[in-house]
Design a binder for these strands. Sequence first.
DNA 1: ATGAAAGCGCTAACAG
DNA 2: CTGTTAGCGCTTTCAT
Lengths: 340, 340
Amino acid sequence: MLRRRPGTPTLEEVAALAGVGRGTVSRVINNAAGVKDTTRRAVQRAIAELGYVPNLAARTLAGRRADAVALVMTEPDWRQFGEPFFSEIVRSVGDALTETEVQLLLTLVRTDAERQRLVEYARGGRVDGVMLMSVHAADPLPDMLAEVGLPTVLLGRRSGDESVTYVDADNVGGARAAVSHLLDTGRRAVATITGPPDMYVAQCRLRGYREAMERAGVEPRGSWTVRGDFSADSGHHAMAELLERAPEIDGVFAASDTMAAGALGALRAAGRRVPDDVAVIGFDDFPLAQHTDPKLTTVRQPLEEIGHAMVRLLLEEMEEPSTAWRHVIHRTELVLRDSA
Amino acid sequence: MLRRRPGTPTLEEVAALAGVGRGTVSRVINNAAGVKDTTRRAVQRAIAELGYVPNLAARTLAGRRADAVALVMTEPDWRQFGEPFFSEIVRSVGDALTETEVQLLLTLVRTDAERQRLVEYARGGRVDGVMLMSVHAADPLPDMLAEVGLPTVLLGRRSGDESVTYVDADNVGGARAAVSHLLDTGRRAVATITGPPDMYVAQCRLRGYREAMERAGVEPRGSWTVRGDFSADSGHHAMAELLERAPEIDGVFAASDTMAAGALGALRAAGRRVPDDVAVIGFDDFPLAQHTDPKLTTVRQPLEEIGHAMVRLLLEEMEEPSTAWRHVIHRTELVLRDSA
DNA sequence: ATGAAAGCGCTAACAG
DNA sequence: CTGTTAGCGCTTTCAT
């Protein structure tokens, strides 16, 4: 509740102690130019002496900036949270923001009530923008945020004509390339483990699989397509199912690295030799590098790049970024055209 | 930046539209008693019509409450983030808060700069309290927070005489019980895979192991103690090392479930029969239930309880919880005495 | 029951 | 360069 603990000094007290006006103190703590060096020093001494820390709520109210961003995980079943994909993304966004004054806030959205709470939190001005990961096709959250004018960036699209700014990989092309690789190295009966059908990314990777098969003139059997949910466990189960229902397969394309790892485990547990009996390739395995139009908002894997791309896009959506945001490091951006 | 988007209505505009004073609107949105029903209705209509959402910064500034809490992960090497332990804790805290208006904010603290940023964020009044998980012995963060009067709760202690409020399990007793169980079922050469030596929880579990061995009159060899870091990978490696350095072992106590799982994998990969050749038990496997003094701040596993316990303790540390906090569900509290 | 008024602590525009 | 002056939008007495 922060019941003004006696001993939480205000800017005014600092000003008094330093013998200057409030404006000057404000300039000093914001590193604004145009303060005599001796004055600045005096103020800094007063700040140190009092142990002054700015009240962020007041600053936000007066300055219309939160110097914070939310990274939202909207995973209803929550299983994916522990998956490497998420930790990589979180780490990557954290890296992009680590040297700045911008505080990264991870939030969970599992229910409608939590969705509502987040919207109010964001609309309430406590963050300068929102990044969302793992968005399912029907999720209204991105629109709720974007409609009220909040800078919003998605990791992955909800559909082919996503209205909200997003960062995405070349899912169709990547999947096609991965499957083609399998076919080119002599595999014929290539199966696929898909992601959740309500996620556009899963649809795209499935399409890439089908296109590659078609181009190679191979008619995939229905039993060669098994559904997963991007988790390692689901990859394991899917592989077990494939082994049972389609023992003829000699290659597998998993729509995510994580599922590929799970599939490998199942294969080994079943005593199959990998890759001699069955070759496995996961989406993220495959290099998608291809520099093109830098204005496009799709990026290449690896995941490390994604955080930077999201932060950069967020920054571009902001009308008047604070100085904290200006410190965001603009690392090399590896951007490529999406073939979808 | 929230450059006051034209169309972000304020409480004042709501009041004008409803034909009432600002105070009344404030009372309505805060569900305060003492507002005539017709008035309340009129205000609610105005709110809906304008799509009004309170400015949280202003509310925080005026009301000295943030209605938000931070759950901090201070893991320098970040490997543990993906571990099930963390997702369980996060889920558990999220559950404790899901039906409330309190927003849960997960934050990462990996470097000193990030530590500093978090302290300023918290001191700045943006959260009502802070929960920390995975705190290493030398981490000054809890003190930095507690010293400025912020409600702070730790998950696990930094030492035997932790000064900050904490929630913890009976680590010594649990480890002792687990190891005794192994010894009671005929195992003699029981090894242990420890956690990071700079974490008190790891020291306690190691002590429990030693005490159980001593009580059983078994002198553990030096090679029977291998160091892990609580991750599944480290459990795997540790087990592999044990197999090589101490092939005589017939039981293993891992200081965490996660490491136990890793150890099992290594055992199977080595073709050892489990549990016939080697039995494995992880800390969290073992039931520690034991109701005693409800004033103590230590709780029993399972993890689901931990979030509730942390939130409850945080609430107790707050001088004047807001109504949002009052909605926190007080679930049954399973509390037990710590034997350490 | 409800309106009016006084801040909460800070930023920013405006005078000097 | 620096002090002063307005607010930012809300909660909270204090009257009425």
